[in-house]
């Protein structure tokens, strides 16, 4: 069915490649990626005279950009995926509780979300990371906390709507337990929405991480992420655009692929929409 949507298929291939980079990249290319070569400072892209690792050019310290992008995939994806997954799981769980439990519990949870939202997320991150050691784990934690309200509020709103639907009442009449109603009847209906938000959030988290790295409280060099590469390359934008361009392109492509894939998934998981894929892309009229 994935083949039926060519864009989603390409997106899946691209994400698979990124996953391979993330898993094997650091082990294979770590030495090359951090080796300085001052003669290749800001080397222009699209030449292979220094070897194909310099295909995308060299950075300000003459390190091959292609190798660095591959190596950086691991940190970038770990942080982004970790933060998105953690905030989605925590946020939607709290949202389900807030939407389905009684009024008081719901109110308490919503006010907690308000507290998080009323606090500028970057400021919160700065404070937390200033006090804690800047590490991947802490970075994930901070980013996750700031994104929880997004999922929480969406989930709660959807639950409030879905729980009034007839089929939920039908399940109640059959004597279904609360957990059964939530996980079997409500969650499948709102999951597509959550996944769509998560893919969009993926890009936001990558950029937020680069902002923190730029401030010096995120990832510390020599560790590297795409976001950090973008912010490091920013000062050379006028004379060596490729420093910021390639990692930026990777962020865009990853987000876009996730988005395409989630769009496909939304259709594929929905029995009433699935025929669009089974049709095989044929169009009438």
């Amino acid at each position: 069915m994935l083949w039926a949507d060519k864009f989603a298929f390409a997106a899946a291939l691209f994400l698979m490649l990124m996953l391979l980079f993330a898993i094997f990249g650091p082990a294979l290319l770590d030495g090359v990626a951090s080796k300085q070569n001052l003669r290749a400072r800001n080397a222009a892209p699209f030449t292979v005279e220094r070897g194909f690792l310099y295909l995308l050019g060299g950075d300000a310290l003459g390190r091959p950009l292609l190798a660095r992008i591959i190596v950086a995939a691991q940190n970038t994806l770990t942080i982004a995926a970790g933060a998105v997954a953690a905030s989605m799981v925590i946020g939607s769980t709290l949202g389900l509780i807030a939407g389905y439990a009684g009024k008081t519990t719901g109110e308490v949870i919503m006010r907690l979300a308000d507290v998080i939202m009323s606090f500028p997320s970057l400021l919160l991150a700065v404070i937390v990371l200033y006090m804690l050691e800047p590490s991947i784990g802490n970075l994930v934690l901070v980013l996750a906390i700031t994104r929880i309200p997004i999922y929480l509020r969406t989930t709660r709103a959807e639950v409030l709507e879905v729980r009034e639907r007839m089929f939920v009442q039908a399940a109640q009449v059959m004597g279904a337990s609360t957990s059964r109603i939530i996980f079997r009847h409500i969650l499948p209906v709102i999951l597509p929405t959550l996944l769509t938000i998560a893919t969009l959030d993926f890009a936001f988290v990558m950029l937020a991480e680069s902002a923190l790295s730029f401030l010096g409280i995120g990832i510390q060099p020599p560790e590297v992420t795409w976001g950090l590469m973008v912010s490091q390359g920013r000062q050379y934008l006028t004379n060596a655009w490729w420093l910021a361009f390639w990692p930026g392109l990777m962020i865009i492509l990853t987000t876009m692929s996730l988005n395409l894939l989630s769009g496909w998934m939304r259709v594929a998981l929905n029995p009433t929409q699935r025929w669009r894929l089974e049709l095989g892309g044929k169009r009438n009229g």
Partner: peptide, 30 residues
């Protein structure tokens, strides 16, 4: 809960009372 199996209900609009994401087998066997 145990009493509910003795009392059942059929709703007005079957389009809304059947969960759209479940197959007929899942709906009945639930």
């Amino acid at each position: 809960a145990p009493l509910r199996r003795q009392l059942q209900m059929v709703f007005q609009d079957p389009t809304q009372s059947l969960a759209p994401h479940m197959s007929v087998f899942e709906i009945i066997s639930e």
